[in-house]
Simulated scan of single mutants.
Amino acid sequence: MSNEQPESGLESQRRFEELSARVAVTQADIAHLHNRLTEAHDRASATDDRADSDRRRIDDLETRADVDRLMLKELYEDGLLSAEHIAQLQDALTSSRKIGAAIGIVMVSRRVSETDAVDILKRASQAANLKLRVIAEEIVYTGDLSTLPPD
């Protein structure tokens, strides 16, 4: 019987070490998953912050466009602008808003800065030999970014 005690003690020690190693691996896996969760949460927060910023920027642009329309109306009523000039300026305002919206779409979808989004749209315009407003209009109406060059 004295032979069984040391052997079962050795067996217990081996099993204990085996379980300890498994626990260590499990703890490392949990730590890794926790880090990934934290990173995912941080990315989601950053995306939410960018979306909020984009919404505020769009709201500001819409407010400015409304003010610009009122100014155009007043200038027309005062006789300082012709109807043709008003139409051209209104087209320019509409194009500007669509370009701004397209920039926002590219920023969110590609996760790039405003400057980079503008560069991407300019390169697409040059590559397709189309005006920037045409490219922007297509993006705003279709949401299709497949024709844009890579970042």
Rank of each mutant, 00 (worst) to 15 (best):
D119E: 01
L72S: 08
L132K: 05
L19Y: 13
S8K: 02
A44T: 01
L61C: 07
D91F: 11
G9V: 10
D54H: 07
T147A: 11
A87K: 15
V134W: 11
L61Y: 09
H85G: 13
V134L: 08
V134M: 06
S2H: 05
R111Q: 10
L145Y: 06
D151G: 10
K122R: 14
L130R: 03
E137V: 00
R50I: 00
K122S: 14
A136K: 07
H41I: 09
E7C: 00
M1W: 08
R22V: 04
L19N: 10
E77D: 13
R133F: 11
A65T: 10
E77I: 13
P149N: 03
G143P: 08
V134T: 14
D42M: 05
V108P: 00
R97F: 12
L70V: 13
A65W: 13
R15M: 10
S53M: 10
I103K: 02
V106H: 12
K73R: 12
S20Y: 11
G100A: 05
K98N: 08
D48L: 15
D151A: 11
Q27E: 14
L121I: 12
A51E: 05
L145H: 00
G104N: 10
I103Q: 00
T115S: 07
S125E: 00
D116C: 08
L61Q: 12
E4G: 03
L37W: 07
E7Y: 04
A46E: 04
S96M: 13
Y141F: 07
D48I: 15
Q88V: 11
T26V: 15
R22N: 05
E114V: 04
N3I: 04
R57S: 06
I135F: 03
P149R: 04
E74T: 07
D29P: 08
A46H: 04
L37C: 08
D119T: 07
D42F: 00
D119R: 03
A92D: 15
L81Q: 07
L70F: 14
L75R: 15
A136E: 06
A102D: 05
L80M: 00
T38D: 09
R123A: 11
R111S: 12
D60I: 02
T115K: 09
G143C: 04
Q126G: 00
S8W: 00
A46G: 05
D52F: 01
D66R: 14
Q90P: 09
E7Q: 05
L75W: 14
D52V: 02
G143I: 07
A101P: 04
S12G: 13
T142A: 01
E17G: 00
R55M: 00
N35Q: 15
I135A: 02
L93M: 12
S96C: 12
S20P: 00
V112W: 06
R111M: 08
E17C: 01
S96I: 14
L89S: 12
I120F: 15
R55I: 02
A21D: 09
T94P: 11
I103L: 05
D116E: 10
R15D: 08
S20C: 04
